[in-house]
Simulated assay, not measured.
Amino acid sequence: PLSAQLCRLWADALGLAQIGVEDSFYEKGADSLILARVAGQLREQLPQAQRLSYDTLLRQMLNEPNVAALARLLNQGEATPGAIAASGEAQRSSSSNALVVPFGGGDVGPVRVMFHAALGTLDYFQHLGRALADQQAGPVIGFAVADTEQYLALEPKRLIERVAEDYAERLIADGHQRFQLIGYCLGGLLATEVARRLLERGMEVVDLSLIDSIPMFIDTDEELAYEAIFVPNLNLDPVKTVFGAHIEDYDVYRAIDLLMARDNRRVPAGAMAALSGDPG
């Protein structure tokens, strides 16, 4: 059976004797790099996986890191947007680009909603989601991006607004009324905007939690600045990755202060790359 094949493949990838169909890859020692490698192996070894894109396979495992969910995807191929998922499975509706991933948590209490970061996946929330579900203090769900092409096609200046409106409408359509909202990185901005929309519609937001989520503190068209904000989503050091291993954090912030003083609190495109020397 397909599930048995997947269990053997994952056990080999993690150096284990065996792995269960519902076992979390993360709890068994996986990380995003191992998931990326296994996604490639799936396409090489399984005919069912060859019908799917590498991105689809990787995102599936980032959002639902277990064999049971992966087997469902491989058995059905590229699911149609309006496909109805069974209880306990990630769900997408035809009118929304939200992939809603259930973590459990019981039926009594406000629904606790975790919003993805910039990459649109829930890998950062796997441990937190299970810990919250173990409390049995209310259902726990995660919002991920269902269609990456649709997500990337959004106008950047309106992305937060458009996605937040979509997610708020999805929560209301699913019949929820009391919420605890949790956002990481860009997801913090989404959670804030979703909270505002829910309150405007008469819903109850009992708590709003932002994790490592800050707005842009500079007005800039500088690509290096945007790269530095994005790369932490890949578990990389923003300063060392974008500016070089020999650059210190303090020097980057000092350069930003210098450029903002020169250009009326803006950092124009190309300004950081054009810096030369050290004014002290």
Results as ranks from 00 to 15, higher is better:
137 A>W: 08
43 R>K: 11
62 L>G: 01
219 D>C: 03
87 S>L: 13
268 P>A: 12
33 L>W: 00
214 I>P: 00
40 G>E: 14
194 V>Q: 01
268 P>Y: 09
256 I>V: 15
133 A>T: 10
208 L>K: 08
100 V>G: 01
233 N>Q: 13
194 V>D: 00
84 I>G: 00
77 G>V: 06
226 Y>Q: 13
135 Q>G: 07
123 D>C: 09
111 V>K: 03
271 A>T: 06
243 F>G: 07
16 L>D: 03
52 L>M: 10
128 L>K: 06
168 A>M: 04
138 G>R: 10
280 G>W: 12
101 V>F: 02
31 D>S: 00
27 E>K: 01
92 R>Y: 05
9 L>T: 00
162 R>S: 14
177 Q>K: 14
178 R>T: 12
181 L>S: 08
14 L>E: 03
235 N>V: 00
153 A>P: 04
114 M>S: 04
118 A>V: 13
235 N>E: 09
264 N>H: 15
179 F>C: 03
49 A>E: 02
28 K>Q: 10
152 L>A: 14
180 Q>E: 14
12 D>R: 09
187 G>H: 02
273 A>V: 09
133 A>V: 07
57 L>F: 05
129 G>D: 11
107 D>I: 07
29 G>V: 05
222 E>S: 12
149 E>D: 15
142 G>R: 05
144 A>G: 11
73 L>D: 12
227 E>H: 06
229 I>T: 09
34 I>F: 01
182 I>S: 05
30 A>Y: 11
148 T>M: 15
192 T>D: 06
21 V>S: 10
60 Q>C: 03
111 V>N: 00
176 H>R: 01
119 L>C: 02
213 S>V: 06
154 L>A: 04
65 P>C: 08
211 I>C: 12
173 A>C: 05
20 G>R: 02
62 L>A: 02
139 P>A: 13
184 Y>A: 03
149 E>N: 14
55 D>I: 04
160 I>W: 00
212 D>G: 13
258 L>P: 01
157 K>F: 03
226 Y>F: 15
49 A>T: 05
86 A>M: 12
226 Y>C: 08
152 L>I: 05
178 R>K: 09
52 L>I: 00
130 R>V: 06
84 I>C: 05
128 L>Q: 14
245 A>T: 10
87 S>G: 00
8 R>E: 15
126 Q>W: 13
26 Y>Q: 04
95 S>L: 11
1 P>H: 15
165 E>F: 06
59 R>K: 14
256 I>W: 15
178 R>V: 08
118 A>T: 08
185 C>R: 00
98 A>S: 08
206 V>C: 11
95 S>P: 02
164 A>S: 15
46 L>Y: 01
36 A>D: 06
117 A>V: 00
266 R>I: 05
241 T>A: 15
31 D>Y: 05
205 V>W: 03
229 I>S: 04
117 A>S: 14
190 L>R: 01
24 S>F: 01
232 P>N: 10
180 Q>L: 04
146 A>Y: 12
102 P>F: 10
127 H>T: 13
154 L>I: 04
277 G>I: 10
170 R>M: 03
171 L>K: 01
188 G>R: 08
274 A>H: 07
39 A>E: 06
149 E>Y: 04
84 I>D: 10
67 V>I: 15
26 Y>E: 07
239 V>L: 10
201 R>T: 03
40 G>A: 11
192 T>V: 02
38 V>Q: 14
180 Q>W: 01
235 N>M: 08
70 L>S: 02
273 A>S: 14
247 I>D: 04
20 G>N: 10
48 Q>V: 12
151 Y>H: 12
